[in-house]
Design a protein around this nucleic acid. Structure first.
Lengths: 237, 237
DNA sequence: ATATCTTGTGAACACTGTTCACTTTGTGAA
DNA sequence: TTCACAAAGTGAACAGTGTTCACAAGATAT
């Protein structure tokens, strides 16, 4: 029975939520710094002064707990990209910022982003055999993030910036793949952007911007090559 | 004295090498199918009828053993890309094949490729503070693979296909990031290529080819947009 | 106050990578 | 051949890991 006169469930419920949150907070703290290898149930229990088995009263498994961390991170990533790109006026700026914000936010929490894409799907997994329906995908967190890209491509096609003959969804996948790759390379090789012969050097931000430009050029309509590439070529040190 | 690459060292040496190879072979077999989570020293020992501790007479650690697997895979990847792209005559074909072969070879052994890029570099790692010198990088396996891309970009610039104002190294990084991202997305989401609304569907190969085209377009010289994009748009089912 | 459901616990299970004292085996020299 | 020394191989143990479970303490509802 639910005699909930309180703003949020019964006192017991709120108490429970508090403990749950403290577990998540501790997990987030450790995971952000040391990743999955540093996050053990026993250490987590130590940190919040509970016994290891107590955690299983709040989370079914370590996997489940991690899933919640990653989901929260992706929610943040989604909001960030949405917010930043919505604030800009010109389409070119908005499109580029879509990519740069995605990458910058991703590498802000390298362990989160890498872990979100660490599992290798087995091709004989029965769950993998059933084709994911588009409707289901677009409902998920990653799906909604992807939708932003599709909309962006469609807008670019409508205003003549992008090649109208491209399938928006396919083009968006390409953009995602390119952004994803840069994020993960920067996470795996932090010096990736700066590494260069001849003493030439590019800051990380400059390289991300460059990459975004290259991506946009790849989608651009024939005979409509914007030339903003040069502006970041001279940022050496 | 060591008889260098002689067909046989001492009999003991060859015996040792045989056992070492059998360990590596068993490790490869298990790792290719189940990845790092399925590969335990004890299981490996079982598989080759040795005790777990025996393995440490041949490899310093599990990490070291894995490193050898990954290195062998990257060697294969390197050879594959080199061989396939060298066999083609026109530059356009060669450049595209560079990317497609990289991606296809990578996802052929998803666990190997993913594991090779799974570690998250800590920004406070002292080894990370020292900037990797270009000379050292180009000597490593990844470096040599990267060099192929740089050469490819330079060739494209020389023959007028690519924008000559781009730094070859920076452009190559962009190409690598884009290819890397596609490979990992396909590994993580096998249905990635086919997922689409409106019943439209692209085979994995077709999508990889499309992505390669987009990348090439991103680097292409102003006013020189090749239009090979359309040919793969109609491969639905 | 009693019965019930929730929280929390410590011990245990089945794993993991790794080390180490130990025995067995192979090899090169006297 | 015999002896000695190094290499190969072993089982037990250490310090971890995620997870389960019987059980005790606490809060809640009747």
């Amino acid at each position: 029975m639910d005699t909930d006169y309180a703003p949020e469930g019964t006192p017991a419920d709120r108490r429970r939520q508090k403990v749950r949150d403290s577990i998540l907070a501790a997990a987030e703290r450790v995971f952000a710094r040391e990743g999955e290898s540093g996050l053990s149930i026993r250490r987590l229990a130590d940190e919040i002064d509970y016994s290891p088995s107590a955690i299983y009263k709040y989370f079914g498994s370590k996997e489940e707990l991690l899933e919640e961390l990653k989901d929260a991170f992706f929610k943040r990533l989604l909001i960030q990209v949405d917010r930043v790109s919505a604030a800009l006026t010109t389409f070119d700026e908005r499109a580029r910022t879509c990519v740069t914000t995605y990458v910058e936010t991703a590498i802000e929490r390298p362990h989160h982003y890498a872990a979100a894409f660490s599992s290798v799907a087995a091709e004989d997994d029965p769950a993998e055999r059933v084709p994911v329906s588009w409707e289901d995908f677009i409902q998920s967190r990653k799906g909604r993030a992807f939708k932003i890209l599709v909309d962006m491509v469609e807008e670019g096609q409508a205003n003549g910036t992008f090649d109208a003959s491209l399938s928006p969804v396919v083009a968006a996948k390409s953009v995602w793949a390119a952004s994803h790759g840069l994020a993960l390379l920067l996470i795996h090789i932090p010096k990736f952007a700066g590494m260069q012969p001849c003493g030439g050097n590019l800051s990380r931000e400059a390289f991300v911007a460059f990459h975004a430009d290259i991506i946009m050029r790849g989608l651009s309509a024939p005979g409509r090559l914007s030339a903003p590439l040069e502006r970041m070529e001279q940022s050496n040190d």
